[in-house]
Amino acid sequence: MDPEPGARGRGETVVLRWAQGPRSVPMARRSPLDALESWGLDRVAESASLVRIEVHDASEVRPLMALPGDGAEGGWGLPLVEVLSEKWGVSDRCGPGKLVWAELRTDRGPEGASRVEAAARPDA
Rank of each mutant, 00 (worst) to 15 (best):
K87R: 14
A119T: 04
G74V: 12
V44L: 08
S114L: 14
G89F: 06
G6P: 04
A19C: 00
R8V: 11
D34L: 15
P32N: 08
S31A: 15
G89C: 05
E37H: 09
W76E: 12
D2R: 13
G11F: 06
G40R: 00
V90N: 03
H56V: 05
A7I: 02
G11E: 08
L41R: 08
L99N: 10
R93W: 04
E82Y: 13
P22I: 09
R115L: 12
S31V: 09
E37R: 14
R30Q: 09
P110S: 11
D123H: 02
G11H: 05
G75C: 07
V116N: 10
C94A: 14
R10K: 08
R52W: 08
E117A: 15
P5Y: 09
R23A: 15
E54T: 03
G6C: 09
G71W: 05
D123F: 02
P32L: 08
R115Q: 13
S85P: 03
M27W: 14
P68G: 05
L78E: 01
G69N: 06
G9D: 12
V61M: 00
Q20D: 04
P110H: 09
D2M: 11
D107G: 13
G74Y: 13
S38V: 01
C94Y: 12
A19N: 01
L64V: 12
A124L: 08
L41G: 00
S47Q: 12
A66H: 07
G74C: 13
E82L: 13
W101P: 10
L99C: 14
W88N: 02
E37K: 13
G74D: 15
V81D: 05
K87V: 05
P96E: 10
K98L: 14
A45L: 01
P26Q: 02
D70T: 12
G109S: 14
G75N: 08
A119W: 14
G95K: 08
E86P: 04
A102Y: 03
Q20G: 01
V90D: 02
R108T: 15
I53W: 13
W88R: 02
R10D: 11
S49K: 13
P5W: 11
E37P: 00
E103R: 12
L16W: 10
R23G: 14
G97D: 04
A66K: 08
V51D: 08
R52H: 08
E111P: 01
E4G: 02
D107P: 11
R29Y: 00
D70F: 10
